[in-house]
């Protein structure tokens, strides 16, 4: 049995350096690797390129790295909900590449799946396609999009085992499985870490082969961005 367990976030992020490219799972604040982000703040690494669907909020998630000017470039599909981000982007301090969400997901998947590039219809005829190769298939136009090349991927799962197998919960799955496939080093933090054999192999979402380091996360805040409820009738 290959054991992927490391003690904590500090050990999990060994080798992280200035100027690296990272993938970070999550949609909004749902399913983000909270412990890894805290450790990146503590390490104070900078000049980072971060690939993540969103950029957190002002005081949580990737917003914490933005506030400390650790990020040089963000690659995302949607970056509302973060004033500091907008300020840094409009002032030119922060380089931002906005790409369609499905293209982002597929580029992450392609990275881990050995596919250097693929054609997608998303963004054809828009500024997203500017400078990119386009091609017609069956009468419809498509844009060539490329895989990424991240040094680390940081993902968050609900449960994981010592062999690195992961199970996600609810919509906290989102980008985590594809990013787990894509990292040269993939770090998984989990709410509950169990011994290999305790998770049902039929239920595994991300096989342990994609995960190099796994640790039991702590102090999960799991903040809700928009608390919407139905009143009891």
């Amino acid at each position: 049995m290959i054991n992927k367990v490391v003690k904590n976030a500090q050990d999990a992020l060994l080798g992280v350096e200035n100027g690296m490219t990272f993938m970070l799972g999550g949609f909004g604040l749902c399913g983000i690797p909270e412990n890894c982000i805290s450790e990146l703040v503590r390490l104070d690494v900078n000049n980072l390129t971060c690939i993540s669907n969103n950029a957190g909020v002002d005081d949580f998630g990737l917003g914490l790295l933005l506030k400390k000017h650790q990020i040089k470039k963000m690659v995302s599909s949607y970056v509302g909900e973060n004033e500091e981000f907008e300020r840094q982007m409009l002032s030119g301090e922060l380089d931002v590449e906005l790409i369609p969400q499905g293209t982002l997901a597929e580029r992450c998947r392609a990275t881990g799946a050995g596919i250097p590039a693929f054609y997608t219809p998303a963004g054809y005829g828009t500024e997203v396609a500017e400078g990119k190769e386009t091609r017609e298939f069956n009468g419809k136009m498509y844009v060539l999009e490329h895989a990424f090349n991240p040094e680390f991927a940081f993902v968050k799962a609900w449960k994981g085992d010592t062999a690195g197998n992961l199970i996600f919960k609810g919509t906290a799955r989102n980008f985590n499985p594809m990013m787990a496939m894509a990292g040269k080093i993939t770090v998984a933090e989990v709410e509950e870490l169990v011994e290999a054999g305790e998770l049902d192999p039929n239920q595994i979402h991300t096989p342990g082969i994609f995960v190099q380091r796994i640790f039991q996360g702590k102090d999960y805040e799991k903040r809700i961005e928009q608390r919407t409820v139905t009143q009891k009738s």
């Binding site: 949609f27 399913g31 499905g102 809700i224």
Partner: peptide, 28 residues
């Protein structure tokens, strides 16, 4: 409310009988 169950607007929602959950690549 469940922080792990939101919609694309980041609002807390529920999932109905017969529903399913999947990753972003499958969604798109």
């Amino acid at each position: 409310e469940d922080a792990d169950l939101i919609n694309a607007g980041k609002q807390t929602v529920t999932i109905l009988k017969g529903g399913s959950l999947f990753d972003s690549a499958m969604s798109f």
